[in-house]
Structure formats: structure tokens, C-alpha cells
Amino acid sequence: MTQLGKSRDSHFPSIEKKHGKKMSYWFGVMKKISDKKYPEQITFLRTKHNFSQAHANALVMYARGSKSTSKFESVKDYFSSIDKTQAKTIKALYKPIMKLHKDIELTIAWNQPVLKLENSYIFGAGVATKHILINPFSKSVLNKFSKKLTDLKVSKHTFAIPNDWKVDEKLMVAMAKARIAEIIK
């Protein structure tokens, strides 16, 4: 499989510089605690060796065989990894939005499918067992449309839709247009 995203070993020079020991030393440390669970390994590195969360995570995950921060090679890979109903709902949500501007791109960021215009995000979607979480990447857009989202669970930055939600294209397009207007200012 292709190496994706930021490789975890990109943290290694900083780890060596900050802690004054070569990575071979740290791999030895990880070998000694390989029987521990992820949280225990992170805690050990943070408390016993003063690692930052980012450095501890990079070392632990690398030692566990995860060489990259990305899980998916493509949007297609992402959709094939989730429930078919959730994939269908997200695709139906994104389809009318992608028609709004010729430069909108569907890509993977934070291991989730997001719509992007220029260097800014328009919409992101993440899945849980019982719902899909939607992020319009703008508190003001979310606040502006909150009255139309009353049937949904709305939090500070996101709103949750049922897995089989009948997409309200008009609402999603209006929210996306508001977000695009913020980006293009």
C-alpha cells in the first residue's frame, strides 16, 4: 500500500533532538512496553520521558505498525470502508454542493471525506454507528441555519444526521453557498 499523508517518522528528528537519544533507543523502550495498551504506552512516554502527545502518538503508532497518519488512499477507499447506507447519504449530500463551483474538490482530510474550495473546507462528514456528523467549517453558517436544523442534534461546530437521512438538498446548498461566500470574500 502507498504511504499516505504525513509519515509518523517525520517526528523522529524532533524526538531525537528534544530527548537527546537516537530512535534505536526509543524503539527499545517501545519493545519493553509492547504488551501494554495504547493509552498506557502514551501515558508512559508522557510521564516518564516528558514526551508531547504528538511525539508519543507518533512513536506508539509507528511501533504498532502504522507508518502514516492517513488510512485511505482515495475517497473511493473511504466510501468502501463504511456502511453502504452512510456512503449513499454522504454522496447524496455532496452531489448538489459540488455543482455550485467548478473548483470544489472532494478529498480526504482527517481521514474523512471533505469538500474543499481553494485552501478552505466547505463541508466535512464523519460517521458513527448511529449517525453521520456534518461539519460546515463555520460557526456563523451553523448559527445562521440552526433554526432549520431543529430536528437534528446540533453542537458547537457540527450537526448529526441519521444514516438514512433524506438529504434536504435545498438546505445543504444554502449552507454551502453561505460557506463559499465566506471563502471567496
Rank of each mutant, 00 (worst) to 15 (best):
T129Q: 15
A128Y: 15
L117K: 07
N135R: 08
S80I: 07
H49G: 02
A125R: 04
V114G: 00
P39Q: 08
V114E: 00
L133W: 12
P113I: 04
I104K: 07
F79M: 00
F72W: 11
L59A: 02
T89L: 01
K88H: 05
N111P: 14
T43A: 15
P113G: 06
Y38F: 09
H101P: 14
Q112A: 08
T129E: 11
L45V: 01
T47Q: 13
P113C: 08
N57F: 04
F123P: 09
A58N: 10
E73C: 02
F44R: 05
I90D: 07
Y94N: 14
D83L: 01
Q53E: 09
G124H: 07
L100T: 09
I132M: 06
G126K: 00
S74I: 12
Q112T: 06
I82E: 02
L117G: 06
P39G: 00
T47A: 10
Q53T: 03
M98Y: 02
L117M: 13
L106Y: 02
L93F: 06
Y62G: 01
I122N: 01
N111R: 08
P96K: 10
I90K: 10
S74W: 13
T47K: 15
P39R: 05
K76I: 05
R64D: 04
V60S: 08
F123L: 14
Q112C: 03
F137R: 04
H55L: 00
T43W: 05
S68W: 10
K67G: 00
V60I: 09
E73H: 09
D103I: 04
L45W: 05
I90W: 08
Y121S: 08
K116L: 09
V114A: 02
